[in-house]
């Protein structure tokens, strides 16, 4: 599995802002890059996987941790 090449700290942001920031970040990446997103709004557990599905990006990691949620997204 590829490690993240870029990170996005979306902690403290409420949905849909973590998704918007993810989308804006990924637009600047190239195919194959992996973005790590860390967020605290529980809405991301649904929204980030859904956003990845509609745009065809691969969700490599979706993890609920003690204080936040972590995702790895491979740009496709």
């Amino acid at each position: 599995m590829n490690g993240p090449t870029t990170r996005l700290d979306a902690r403290g942001l409420l949905c849909p802002l973590p998704v918007i920031r993810t989308q804006d970040k990924i637009r600047k990446l190239k195919i194959g890059d992996v973005l790590e997103v860390v967020a605290t709004d529980p809405g991301v557990l649904h929204d980030i996987p859904a956003w990845c599905r509609v745009h065809g990006h691969r969700l490599l990691v979706s993890e609920q941790r003690a204080d936040d949620f972590r995702f790895h997204i491979e740009v496709s």
Binding site: C15, P16, P42, A50, W51, V54, H55
Partner: peptide
């Protein structure tokens, strides 16, 4: 309550891309 973003959900149902703009 279900925490889905309805615009994203609609896009998924339709099979289209969705751009969320700040």
């Amino acid at each position: 309550r279900q925490k889905r973003n309805n615009a994203l959900w609609v896009a998924e149902q339709l099979g289209i891309k969705l751009h969320i703009v700040d």
